[in-house]
Amino acid sequence: MNIEVNGERREVRAGDLAAALEELGFADAVLATAVNGAFVPAGERAAAMLAEGDRLEILAPMQGG
């Protein structure tokens, strides 16, 4: 299905968020996720099913002031 990952259209085979992260190359990364603007805690990723057109945000630590 097609979803939006950090603002870019991507095609993923995975059905849930945990599997999608692995497929997208984030398997062991320190990051936080949100789907359609709502935070999805790490413990709930495997149960979070994705749907066509979902907007996925993958955020990681970054420099800040």
Binding site: N6, L31, L59, A60, P61, M62, Q63
Partner: peptide, 10 residues
């Protein structure tokens, strides 16, 4: 201080 930003897999 630190922030959170979009991460690119590569």
């Amino acid at each position: 201080t630190v922030s959170l930003r979009r991460e690119a897999a590569g």
